[in-house]
Amino acid sequence: MNQVRVGVSDIELCAYLDSELPADRRADIEASLARHPESRAKLDAWRRQGHQLRATFGRIAQEPLPRQLTASLVEPVKISFVPQAAPKSTPLPQPTLRAAEPALRAPGATPRNVWRNVGLALLGFSAVAGIAASGLLRTIHSPSEPQALLAATSVPGFGLTRHAAEAHAAFAPQGGRWLDVRSADAAVLTTFAVQAGLDARLPAPPAGLRLLGLRMTPGDGGLAGLALFESDKSGPVSLYVTRAPRGAVPGIVLRETSSLTIATFTLDGTAYALTGAASRDQMVDWASALRMSLLQPRSLRGS
């Protein structure tokens, strides 16, 4: 039989060490420790552990906080949840096949507006069907289909969120099929994006996301980039990168469609929209991590 257990139990020894015992019980333990040197030795070893922990890691708390860490908190971070969101005043794009898909509806959109959207979508569908009947359908089904659809919907004022959702719906399900550059290195993709004319940095992928590559697409302010990620649990995730519109809201703004969550933020004149089917919390975590990555000096990001 182990004498230590007979003398003072480990649970009581812990509570004694951490001053979590009432005074009368402490006196009992002290008397018992005098009779059981093994318990005393164990107590001393545990006490040394505490000293060593504080000596080893204590200095971390004395370090100055990194700028990017405080910057990510000091700057206002606004998170708004707008179900089925799109600006009310957003002009409808030219009718296309995509308009018939589950819509990004304006907050508080009236059924009348919804029916108007559906009507225009059907009109667009009819137009496409007419084209198909005249023998031109092959161009719609060619490998350039997503690009054609995006080009058709890239009208000024269309909105970052909606562009991001459209680009995600067009390219993300195809995985790496539509990529211009396949690389897991954000620095490589940034170089390509800058050379292509998109003056923006691409962040390193956060934990849980694997970078597949980059696709260039037309956007409101000229060229836009779409970095594609894959995740184990939430399917494809994309990051739409373009020039920031005027009057961009600081912080992270969250919007949702019926199936997608879009977290947008602006940094150094560039707008980023992370789109995927993950939960709201997960998307904000990823967006925060991406934003943190962009706030870090280039040397830390390996670019």
Partner: peptide
């Protein structure tokens, strides 16, 4: 690490944001 590293700061930032 006896000094904090970027991964730790990333974790702390995510916790703070949460």
């Amino acid at each position: 690490h006896v000094q904090s590293c970027g991964l730790v700061d990333d974790l702390v930032a995510r916790a703070a944001a949460s």
